[in-house]
Nucleic acid binder design. Sequence first.
DNA 1: CTGAAAGCGCTTACAG
DNA 2: CTGAAAGCGCTTACAG
Lengths: 336, 336
Amino acid sequence: MANIKDVARLAGVSPSTVSRVVAGSSRISPETQARVREAMKVLNYYPNANARSLVRRATNAVGVIIARPAEQAFANPFFPEVLRGIGAELHRHGYDLVLTMTTTPEEEHAACLRLLKQRRVDGVILTSSRVHDALLEELVAGEYPFVLIGRAGEGQPVSWVNNDNVAVGEMAVEHLVGRGHQRIALINGPEELTVSLDRRQGFRQAMARYKLDLPSEYEVEGEFTKDGGYRAMVRLLTLPQPPTAVFCADDAMAVGALMVLKERGLTRQVALIGVNDDPLTALLDPPLSTVRIPVFDLGSTAARLLLDGLQHGVTGPRQVVLPSQLVVRESTNWTL
Amino acid sequence: MANIKDVARLAGVSPSTVSRVVAGSSRISPETQARVREAMKVLNYYPNANARSLVRRATNAVGVIIARPAEQAFANPFFPEVLRGIGAELHRHGYDLVLTMTTTPEEEHAACLRLLKQRRVDGVILTSSRVHDALLEELVAGEYPFVLIGRAGEGQPVSWVNNDNVAVGEMAVEHLVGRGHQRIALINGPEELTVSLDRRQGFRQAMARYKLDLPSEYEVEGEFTKDGGYRAMVRLLTLPQPPTAVFCADDAMAVGALMVLKERGLTRQVALIGVNDDPLTALLDPPLSTVRIPVFDLGSTAARLLLDGLQHGVTGPRQVVLPSQLVVRESTNWTL
DNA sequence: CTGAAAGCGCTTACAG
DNA sequence: CTGAAAGCGCTTACAG
């Protein structure tokens, strides 16, 4: 493969000059530029990014970490879609995306540092946000550029992009109350995730606002999967006073919950609403109501925040909250 | 950040020795090893992968190209799942994954060469296979290590992993014939993709074997999306003799086709079978029959083939075909 | 078993 | 406007 010396020789200039032409430096005469470009084309020259990284101390690559138990990684359309958003924005700015999929927080931690310190990516995007996260503190302490999809703790100097998860919980409850429900339960995701905490907070706030009774058995926790939703719904139905409506903190869970209702012929007895707007849930019987999250935008915005820092030196933590939207379908579109 | 000289100084050895310890070279005395390891730990040393790549002429990174019109990229669970398979295998061997998403063949071509020649990834995995592909020829000519998910043309010296798409088409028809159908149509994907050609070939072969009439209007082509399936089904239903069963070359298309049937109350008049086993299609009404593709395994096998070449110098093109499996559900589980 | 030296392919002050 | 030189952080024959 041709290197910069080959090009220089063919063009009759020094390697420095070739480097300047590649970099688009202004102080090169048009004739020299033309000769160099011609030589580059003849030799089909691509500058070696690794050599360049070494001296520039920048790789033009961003690390993305998807942290989820393997089985769940992509069962849920959230991750592919967020990746698409990130990829689109990185691509627009000529950055490459180094993808790492991890299953435990420890693995995530190690992978992230390896990416930054060994692979030397210019920054990192984390796609899961946990409540206590040693990784965040290490990244802050090391002054590594990174953006979190989700949110950090109050006052932590971290850049993040989140959707309004508290509002998501509130919207769901408001909608259900509007349909006449009073006994409303929550099937929530793992409580070490901020997304679960926030949706629950919104749920509780709205329940309190409407002065609705909220027995502790009405809040069930499970995995962000069909199975998690299935098991949770089974438990809710064993209660002496089962709920008439259930807010599921994720569409996959809502699908699992729906399976229980269908098996027992209860689909029109218990209202069901999820979160995410997974494309296929609209086609279920009944079509699932949901709160639509701007997943692509979460990804592209995270990438944009990161690149603003890397390219334009935009400094200091920035936080962005994107709005979500209620989508009413048959699973809740009836009055108690 | 600490570099190899810092470690050497602290351990009281030369950089060469540190390098050998990092590489796990055998000819270093245990005492020296211990001192070096201690220094590495104290300084929290990570070797700079870019510097290493430069001299080793290997990056320990593999490029993965997902080539699909943006909207479809991940609507279909194929890509996330194949990525998971690739990622798992790469991770096991300490390779990083550089992900590139492209929309046109030209973009794919350029991105692929950039990855290999500029970013210097050690090899590439292509996840879409087209019928005439200039890229393949360039990769072969350049002797770049790569593996295709799908297949190349007959006799092309290319490594690939594919599922048995001809058998997929045959299985679908056999199943439908077993249920008493004679008027069977095909809703196929874009014909520039080998996957579409092969499924169609299987479809045709089986139709011929059973001596069934196959008017040209019974083969409709569309995008691998819900919309594509929707439009194709509408066309089939305008025929004077509409089919009693339809083989859709992809689950997303089958879902679109199902929407048409539901709108017209024809779900029990026309049998429907898809391909892929998208998790949610089992929950539709009626649950969709399908042919299950081992998508994760396609990804992990592709990565394994590539790494066999990179790590163990396994040379020469190799081809692997993975079996698919008929999954019968309500959408076809009735007799005409 | 260990070190000094050369070199991987670039970029970038410095000098002219 | 252009070039010679030093250096980015490693690895690896070569020598001992």
